[in-house]
């Protein structure tokens, strides 16, 4: 059997195995994407035939201050969520490895449970946590520390921290689980050799562990980033589909939803949805290239 064969000379068996996936992809992913592109080039007519308007919606978006606001919000949201949840996950993963053998399984298990909670339900729970006067966060953390109560969901300054806390709460457990597996899979001999040679803990972490687990971290980064940019449920429930006070919690997907279903403009809504892509790609390059640049000097 030739190892290299042309795509169209594939025998039927192979085609049969590979085709269903790509068929689904074509019907339920590529078609809507293409349709979205077309939709974004059409006028916002609710009834009757929409007319072709070219890049009008995109041009309007460029001058739309709410749009830029939502871009900035989404970027801040994504960066904060990624930084905190991966940072915490690294800490937790190390903590779990230091704990008793018998405790490691249950601890990892318990950490993942918040991530199993649907974001919608989580947002409902967080309504209690963030509640203006009586919320858990105010009662148990802010007031005992001697600060005045924070109205998390209506004070524009605290809306972004609120949704970041929610996302971090949700994802940290999963990321810990991934990183724990990566840490457990490190080759022991390298670490032992470094320890014997008198490399201190910090150097071992920075120069050996991090490069070893960097593929997993990259995976976590990409996963979180895509999820943050597609985030909808959390802020939808917290703010009932609006952007919150002063639009401080307006994310790109929420804005697209508003444009299409509240404003009645499917064309401009689709334009907002599709305009997420370049931002996402940009952020992706940023979060994958910056660590590489940082660690260029650290490689042994």
């Amino acid at each position: 059997m030739p190892r290299y064969s042309g795509f169209f000379r594939i025998n039927l068996g192979r085609l049969f195995l590979a085709a269903p996936f790509f068929l689904f992809l074509l019907v339920f992913w590529a078609t809507p994407l293409g349709e979205g592109l077309l939709l974004s080039l059409e006028s916002d007519t609710l009834w009757g035939e929409p007319s072709f308007v070219g890049f009008k919606h995109y041009k309007e978006l460029l001058q739309d201050s709410r749009y830029w606001h939502s871009v900035a919000n989404t970027s801040v949201f994504a960066l904060c969520t990624i930084t905190f949840s991966i940072g915490l996950a690294l800490l937790f993963a190390h903590g779990i490895r230091l704990s008793l053998k018998g405790l490691q399984g249950p601890l990892a298990f318990a950490l993942v449970v918040p991530g199993l909670c649907p974001p919608t339900v989580l947002a409902l729970l967080f309504l209690l946590v963030f509640h203006g006067k009586e919320g858990l966060l105010n009662r148990w953390l802010i007031e005992p520390l001697g600060f005045g109560t924070v109205n998390w969901l209506s004070d524009p300054n605290f809306i972004m921290p609120a949704i970041v806390i929610q996302a971090v709460w949700r994802w940290t457990g999963f990321m810990t689980f991934f990183l724990l597996c990566a840490l457990n899979a490190r080759p022991r001999d390298v670490l032992d050799a470094a320890a014997i040679d008198g490399v201190n803990i910090w150097q071992r972490f920075y120069k050996i562990t991090l490069p070893l687990i960097s593929p997993t971290i990259t995976f976590c980064l990409i996963y979180l980033l895509v999820d943050c940019f597609a985030q909808f449920a959390g802020s939808y429930v917290l703010f009932g589909g609006s952007g919150g006070a002063n639009d401080s919690g307006l994310l790109l997907v929420t804005y697209a939803y508003q444009k299409a279903f509240v404003g009645g403009g499917f064309g401009s809504g689709a334009a907002v949805s599709l305009s997420i892509l370049p931002w996402l790609a940009g952020m992706l390059i940023l979060v994958t290239l910056v660590p590489r640049y940082l660690w260029k000097g650290a490689r042994m």
């Binding site: 809507p32 939709l39 949805s273 892509l277």
Partner: peptide, 21 residues
Amino acid sequence: TLGCMVVLIPAQMVALPLFVW
């Protein structure tokens, strides 16, 4: 590459046209 594209453009992003379709 197509697989990567699907990862980068999750269904939520094309929710609107998907709904129409």
